[in-house]
Design a protein around this nucleic acid. Structure first.
Lengths: 192, 192
DNA sequence: ACTGCTAACTTGACAGTGACAAGATTGGAG
DNA sequence: CTCCAATCTTGTCACTGTCAAGTTAGCAGT
């Protein structure tokens, strides 16, 4: 990652990414405006283009950052001795804590899919995901092919996170996403 | 719909919804342009506003249509005697067949959440979903609270559909979403 | 110190867009 | 036949993303 010290502005790149995350958290990715970000950062309207090329470039950088954060979160959970269930909860925790990043990470039409930085970050989080699933006791996932089991786990946590963030889940689940996730995910792993 | 060419264009509303679905399927919701839709339909740039108010109105109508289609699909599967697993597969089939609708249905920031037509359609598909889950044999979902079990099922199919559509799943899953879904969903229901 | 050099930013312009207001056209009810 | 309300058009505005060209700042080498 190219670190810049305060030239004219300071580090505009990081500032813009932060402002973008904030704006997306508030109004979603569709409403994001580069000019608005520039305004928030106190620079001219064309400044963002210099760092990210275009809008897709900015969102790609955000997505890459998101995959990095996700990998961090999963690694941290694993280091703490958590199993698959806790990795799943960590996935949801990440999605809720960084909803702007999450909202962009799985919308390829918004991104430069071939961006090397993005691909690297995706790779890192894929590995972290794979490692998390590898810790599963075979009996927990009832004899299924490990590869399929991993996809089942990924699907259920990804689905829960998406539905939670979209507000589609019933309100009687409470307002703690991690607890709710734990309940909903458990049936995949609990023994019969 | 027979081939008509009315000067006042007959059913613009339906035509625009169709064009919108097509455009979103191609380029995603973010790239959608009302003026482009108007061009495709051969009307003036301001015509869509009359039927939908604004962009959010159009997307809301699309989402409502999508919830209707989803309810239809689930009802059809249930009428054919399918269980929860097949309902799940039907959910995925719907998402893939109507990816434009699906892409919009769970992005509240693009919609008028309070639109009565939308709420009614959501209600209908919620009921269909609930009915589908209600057919589950208690032993299939291993003693979990039925309410939680339903959310688990919803999460796993929704997550699978989302990941499939975003192209995030590994390519060795094949190119048949229904077969792949069946494999990935099964671990939730299979007996220990 | 001064000379270039390059990255970081600005200024200015252009085509497209969503939204609104006001006018035109139509089918149909009375 | 008249009139009206729904449908659609025209014109306009502020705003957006992107590009081209210019400006400023840090820095290395002499």
């Amino acid at each position: 990652m190219t670190e810049t010290r305060p030239y004219h502005h300071g580090d505009l790149r990081r500032t813009l990414l932060g402002a973008a995350a904030e704006a997306i958290t508030e109004n979603g990715p569709a409403a994001l405006s580069l000019r608005d970000l520039a305004r928030r950062a106190g620079v001219s309207h064309a400044a963002p283009a210099h760092h990210f090329g275009d809008k897709a470039g900015l969102l790609t950088a955000l997505a890459a950052q998101g995959f990095g954060y996700l990998a961090d979160e999963l690694d941290r959970t694993r280091a703490a001795g958590g199993g698959v269930l806790e990795a799943g909860v960590a996935y949801v925790r990440f999605a809720v804590a960084h909803r702007a990043h999450f909202a962009v990470m799985f919308q390829p039409e918004l991104l430069n899919r071939a961006d090397p930085e993005l691909l690297a970050a995706q790779d890192r989080s894929s590995s972290a995901l794979r490692d998390a699933v590898a810790t599963v006791d075979r009996s927990e996932l009832r004899g299924a092919d490990a590869r399929i089991a991993g996809l089942s786990a990924w699907s259920i946590v990804h689905g829960f996170a998406t539905l939670w963030l979209s507000g589609a889940l019933p309100p009687d689940l409470g307002d703690n996403p991690e607890d709710a996730a734990r309940q909903v995910i458990r049936p995949l792993f609990a023994r019969g």
